[in-house]
Each structure stands twice: as structure tokens, then as C-alpha cells.
């Protein structure tokens, strides 16, 4: 009998940390606050470090510090587990985009570099400079080569984004598969599928042909490109997604516009992740906590940015994501 590995210590610690997650109610209260200072006070209350009292514009540092803190806790708890990389690859690929564009355009992109990837930025820089990707994960090297090749053909910086995005998702799916954890695999498949659904809606809305959609199609989801192909041709694509787990969200989403659809996609994943609340010993709660924290920080960023720009509470509340707790 092969027993699943258990992590009583890690899960128990996460359970305590979960108490500091912001609930949807608290997030809505933050959206309702008149002063941004009150929002910042709430963050301090919930364990965010060094929240600025005077200068509200410095909140971005607080949020990225909080995210790094979260990654650090998970790394400390399960140093041998690789699933955390699935959450970090997006930072690597963001940096690759910046570095490649920096190279082709000659414009300094340092301000767009983000911390927290799986590979140090210097290493990425050196690999690109040497055109030698042997030290990087295989998929990453291939994606860089593809990006450079596409760029030399088209001279379009957008192709760099497209190639690297595809690489990022391929890498995520690969890591998920290697983890052999059903929860991680399910999570990644959903993220990939929803990315494709978003592209699908956007491309159709812009009246692009299927070829353009296939350019941005990412692998790693459960819905194959042929389903999208069939849906692309019809006037009523909703039917094509019947029987998949996305039929409802697609139906509502395609009527309500992108902002709402994006929020629904986030909520959909949160709903999936929430099943980990009832798991007591295995890895799932850790993965869920990572997602919950990422999502919380994203929502807090939306709230604070909106506050700075004097957007009304009602509109902010429409954008507040579901919370884990």
C-alpha cells in the first residue's frame, strides 16, 4: 500500500496562518473605507509588515514583501517539494520578456524586473547574452529560442510575449505532471483552460481569425484546441463548452464583459482550491494557501489602486475576488 506523504507540521502551521487571511467581508469593508489610511491599517492588523502610514503610494513594496514572505514560509515548510515553482514561473517568464525586449529595443527595462522567480535574474541575463540555455530548464531555453526566432521573423515585440507565455504555461503543466499530485495537476489544468477561454473571448471580440487564436493558445489544459476550433466557427460557442466544467462560467462570462469574466475565472479557481480546507495532512492546504495569498494580494492591489484613483466603492466591490476564508 503506497501511502501518500503526510505533512502534519506544515499543514498545522498553515492552518494558523490562514487565520490572518482577509475574508471577503473584510475586503469589502476595505473597499467601503473613505480613507486609504484605514485600508492600510487593516493590512497591518492582518500581519502585513511595514505598512506605510503617511505615504500611501508606497504600498506596492508592502505587497511584494508580503508575497515573498509567503513563498519563503512555504519553502521553509516543504523545501523538497517543487510545486511552489508552478507559482513562480510567471515571474521568470516576466523577467525573460523584459530582458529580451531590452535586448531588441535597447531600452532599459530594469523597473519591470520582478523578484521571486525560480532562477536569479542575473543568470537569465547571462544565458541570454551567451545564447546558451543549458543551465536553464529545457522548456525555458526552448521558449527563449522560439521568442527570438519569431521576433527576427516578424520584428514584433508582441511575438516575444506570445512565445514566452506559451513557454510559461508549458513549464507549469510539466512541473504539475512531475509533482504527480492530482490537486496540483487539476489546478494547473484549470489555469491553462481559463487562460485559453479568456483568449478565445478576446480574440473573437476583436474579430481575429482562428490562426490568431492558435498563436496564443497554451498547452496544459483539459480542453483541446479542436474544441476551440469548433467553437470558433459557430455563432453560439456556448454549446461547444457544454459538458466541460466551464459551461456556466463561459455562458455568463461571454455576456457580461471581460472585467467580470476575469473575476469569475479567479473565483472559479478559488472555488476549486477551497476543497483543500477539509484536507488535514497532505500537501493540498499549502498549495491552496499560496493561491489564496496571491489572490488576496491581487485584490488588495486592486482596492488600493482604485482608492488612490478615487474610484467609487461600488465599482471596487464589483472587482473584489472571492476569498479563501
Amino acid at each position: 500500500m503506497a501511502e501518500e506523504k503526510i505533512y502534519p507540521y506544515a499543514v498545522a502551521r498553515i492552518r494558523v496562518l490562514e487565520k490572518n487571511l482577509l475574508s471577503k467581508q473584510t475586503l469589502n469593508q476595505m473597499a467601503d473605507e473613505k480613507e486609504i489610511e484605514s485600508c492600510l491599517r487593516t493590512l497591518t492588523e492582518y500581519g502585513y509588515d511595514n505598512v506605510p502610514e503617511g505615504n500611501a503610494r508606497e504600498f506596492e513594496q508592502v505587497l511584494s514583501a508580503e508575497l515573498s514572505k509567503t513563498y519563503a514560509v512555504i519553502r521553509e515548510l516543504v523545501p523538497e517539494e517543487k510545486f511552489i515553482n508552478i507559482f513562480l514561473y510567471k515571474n521568470d517568464y516576466q523577467n525573460l520578456k523584459v530582458l529580451l525586449k531590452e535586448e531588441v529595443s535597447g531600452i532599459d527595462g530594469t523597473q519591470y524586473i520582478v523578484q521571486g522567480g525560480t532562477e536569479p535574474v542575473e543568470k537569465l541575463k547571462q544565458s541570454i547574452l551567451d545564447r546558451n540555455y543549458t543551465d536553464l530548464p529545457k522548456i525555458m531555453g526552448e521558449a527563449i529560442e522560439e521568442a527570438l526566432e519569431l521576433y527576427s521573423k516578424t520584428q514584433s515585440g508582441q511575438m516575444i510575449d506570445i512565445a514566452l507565455d506559451r513557454g510559461a504555461f508549458r513549464q507549469m503543466a510539466q512541473s504539475a505532471k512531475e509533482s504527480e499530485n492530482a490537486f496540483v495537476i487539476g489546478y494547473t489544468a484549470r489555469v491553462c483552460d481559463l487562460t485559453n477561454l479568456k483568449s478565445f473571448l478576446r480574440m473573437r471580440h476583436m474579430n481575429k481569425d482562428f490562426g490568431a487564436f492558435m498563436n496564443v493558445f497554451v498547452e496544459g489544459g483539459d480542453i483541446s484546441s479542436s474544441v476551440f476550433f469548433n467553437a470558433y466557427g459557430t455563432d453560439n460557442p456556448t454549446d461547444q463548452f457544454k459538458g466541460t466544467r466551464y459551461d456556466q462560467i463561459f455562458e455568463i462570462g461571454s455576456e457580461k464583459g471581460f472585467t467580470e469574466f476575469e473575476k469569475m475565472c479567479d473565483d472559479f479557481i478559488m472555488d476549486y482550491v477551497k476543497s483543500a480546507k477539509y484536507i488535514a495532512l497532505t500537501l493540498e492546504p499549502l498549495i491552496a494557501y499560496l493561491y489564496a495569498k496571491e489572490s488576496e494580494i491581487k485584490t488588495v492591489r486592486i482596492i488600493l489602486t482604485s482608492k488612490l484613483n478615487q474610484i467609487s466603492s461600488e465599482i471596487i466591490k464589483e472587482r473584489v475576488r472571492e476569498a479563501y476564508v
Partner: peptide, 14 residues
Amino acid sequence: SIAGQAAAGVVTED
């Protein structure tokens, strides 16, 4: 041991 590890996880934070 299993219960103790879990308890230690909580005591670390609380």
C-alpha cells in the same frame, strides 16, 4: 508523532 508534529506546527505560530 503525527499528532505531535501537527501540534508543533500550531505552537510555532501560537
